[in-house]
Design a protein around this nucleic acid. Structure first.
Length: 430
RNA sequence: GCCGCCGUAGCUCAGCUAGGUAGAGCGGCUGGCUGUUAACCAGUCGGUCGUAGGUUCGAGUCCUACCGGCGGCGCCA
């Protein structure tokens, strides 16, 4: 029996039992108003002095914020209640009397304070709403892939070598040797496509980047689909469909939570295929016209991404970056080998990159050459090169950052709210 | 890592410009109110002013260093 059921009017005039936590308490002497939360919703319950035992009324008066209680009473429809329904209490049982001075107050708090009390902050309505949306976004990702013939093949978290730079890897001792926390599962899903065709991995990834920004975590979750026989073009179309599905499902199932977040859903509804596309070269021209000092060959920075992102109403692909600025495994464009067959998907409203993807090099010789050009240790990549020795096929894939897309969907100012316990350069507690 | 800003009660902040011995709101506690909506009303508890040094008769206030945090940037999902 949940608060949600009472708020939906299913139990009106029936006897109900609510198990939950005290959010707030008001009183007007003879009537006490308790606001109770149970994870499905929040409701007001009223305790009338002349309707309960004297002890029950006194106990109610002693209740502290966040005390856990079980109340029995009659569900009522009442215009005076905050959500139109309330429970008129007949009996109340105290499960645990919370200590005085619950740290999270009714008024505003600073970010540092709240993060230090994240274990309690997650109970707040706004945080509950965000984490509900998070769960929905993750479910949507997995449902979409599972329904489209993908097989989940999880990649290891402890890895022997870097995909990209070693500088951004967390090093861990490994039986007298060194291991690193994975910063991508991509290389491993490239292996499993030859077994399953279409695969994905989903899990936490770790980057020891010293980036102190509202868009970076050192531990974040990424879904990485990889598809055999997919061209660059197939890849982009698939990304469009997937992002559209995620946004639609979230709008459908989490409208209440988005309302709690005061998210204007109009921009989200515009996310329908086809998404806009511009080449990196066009992006540079746009930026130069916008009076940004940037030359062809330089990577796009945060202000650049924001500028482009604000120019479009739906997500926009920026494709064909200079090969030199991108990862070693990206397939060069046959029409212009200076650029790679890669694309980043920028979320609108100034949010910027939420996906990075590319067609991968499938030719052994070319891949060996690139590993050498990038100064990477060939030995470490022998297993990866095997994939080009035995039944190599053109293939493509991408990585979707869960927290990044969530930031956009919820329109958050900072990524640290998108995950239950954020890990940033400056904070690893609690 | 670089640039900028900020550390005063449990929390959010005022006090600093022009140095004179610490204040509000919220929360807690006590009391009042039989329909409250971050309820309200009265009272009350609560602070080595981030740390260390310096200037001064006197430092929350001025100076120096350090520590912690926030915002922006770089790197990236």
């Amino acid at each position: 029996m949940s608060i949600r059921d009472v708020l939906d009017g299913k139990l009106t005039e029936k006897e109900v039992e609510i198990k939950g936590w005290l959010v707030n308490k008001r009183s007007s002497g003879g009537v006490q108003f308790l606001i109770i939360r149970d994870g499905t919703g929040t409701i007001q319950v009223t305790v009338h002095k002349d309707e309960v035992a004297q002890k029950a009324f006194q106990d109610t008066d002693r209740l502290t914020q966040e005390s856990s209680i079980i109340v029995k009473g009659i569900a009522k429809e009442d215009k005076r209640a905050p959500d139109g329904y309330e429970v008129r209490v007949k009996g109340l049982r105290l499960v645990h009397l919370a200590e005085q001075e619950y740290p999270i107050g009714k008024k505003e708090h600073g970010v540092d304070f709240l993060l230090g009390y994240r274990q309690l902050w997650v109970r707040s309505p706004r945080q509950v709403a965000i984490l509900k949306v998070r769960a929905e976004v993750i479910k949507a990702c997995r449902d979409f892939l599972d329904e489209n013939g993908f097989t989940l093949t999880d990649s290891p978290i402890l890895t022997p070598a870097a995909v990209e730079g070693v500088a951004t890897l967390f090093e861990v001792p490994y039986f007298g040797d060194k291991a690193f926390l994975a910063q991508s599962g991509q290389l491993y899903v490239e292996a499993t496509i030859a077994a399953f065709g279409k695969v994905y991995c989903f899990g936490p990834t770790f980057r020891a980047e010293k980036s102190k920004t509202p868009r970076h975590l050192t531990e974040f979750w990424m879904v990485e689909p990889e598809m055999a026989f997919f061209t660059f073009e197939d890849n982009l179309k698939f990304q469009e469909d997937m992002v559209t599905y995620i946004v639609k499902k979230t709008l459908e199932k989490r409208s209440k939570e988005l309302a709690v977040l005061k998210r204007n859903v109009k921009p989200l509804k515009k996310a329908e295929p086809p998404f806009d596309r511009i080449s990196y070269t066009e992006a540079i021209q746009m930026l130069q016209k916008g009076r940004y000092k940037i030359e062809w060959g330089e990577d796009l920075g945060t202000p650049h991404e924001r500028f482009i992102s604000l120019k479009f109403e739906k997500p926009v692909f920026v494709h064909r970056y200079p090969a030199k600025a991108k990862a070693f495994y990206m397939q060069p464009d046959p029409e212009n080998p200076e650029v790679a067959l890669c694309a980043d998907l920028m979320a609108p409203e100034g949010y910027g990159e939420i996906i990075g993807g590319s067609e991968r090099i499938h030719d052994l010789k070319l891949l060996e050459q690139r590993i050498e050009e990038f100064g990477l240790p060939k030995k470490a990549y022998e297993w990866y090169l095997d994939l080009r020795r035995y039944g190599s096929v053109p293939h493509s894939g991408f990585g979707l950052g869960i927290e990044r897309i969530l930031m956009w969907i919820c329109k958050l100012k900072h990524i640290r709210e998108t995950i239950p316990f954020s890990r940033t350069m400056k904070r690893i507690y609690p």
